[in-house]
Amino acid sequence: MTTESIERPPAQIPAQAGIGLRAEHYKEVIGSQPPIGWLEVHSENYFGQGGKPLHYLEQARQLYPISLHGVGLSIGSTDPLNKAHLDHLNRLIHRIEPGLVSEHLSWSSVDGKYFNDLLPLPYTEEALKHFSTRVHQVQDILQQQILIENPSSYLSYSHSTIAEWDFMNAIVENTACGILLDVNNVYVSAVNHGFDARHYLRAITADAVQEIHLAGFTIDIIGGQDILIDTHNKPICDEVWALYQVAIERLGAIPSLIEWDSDLPPLDFLVEEASRAQTIMDECHALVA
């Protein structure tokens, strides 16, 4: 163990509400230490070798357990796994000792070009086999379990043969990875593709879910139709809070993240959203007890 880690809180992410730590809030979070259970950051923002990002992240780690959420590993790509990217991630894992490490059910690069976006996979047997092999490889290299998050998506493929929730469950079965269940993404995709969000929540393998994401979306009107865009710049909507309640009733208390990426509100607002999630977890727990 390094000297720093002795002063750190345990790595494990508690079954409580947490918030995303963004650069705009570094000083305030470290200075005021808001009453939240844990923090999450986007791994790639800490791939540099030094300077402010790592400086503040290490300070935050002295105060909170931290989860590393990746957006750029491109697990679903047919290109070879990017070893340099994994090296950066591995180094960051050793430096920060995160409680959870997660990535997405998506691809973001092909033929060496990156699109830095979570692009949708076809849900076919071929893609399932490919994605499972890659999750295996990543877990082998990182020497730890990772969580896979369901993406929000804006298109589907006519040759897909597997429902997304079954695809997620099959990956868990094949690789023993965990699930990061983004309830907002379930809702966004349900509206965009016309499936039943509640069915998704009932169908997902309960034991595998180790983290939940909550966020806000924007409604774009395209071709006269409402399309939900997962913008992470708005409060969580009532429908998503209702789905969250359904998920918590089924899954019990699960580490739950308030995710906000652009047009950041004051820190207090994020803390309030987190406390709302916490209240839902506490009330469900009280009912069960």
Binding site: A23, E24, S43, Y56, V71, A215, T218, H232
Partner: peptide
């Protein structure tokens, strides 16, 4: 000056 991290998983709306 703290640079805002550029990697995130929000999607830009068409607005």
């Amino acid at each position: 000056v703290v640079k805002a991290g550029k990697n995130d998983c929000g999607v830009k709306s068409l607005g």
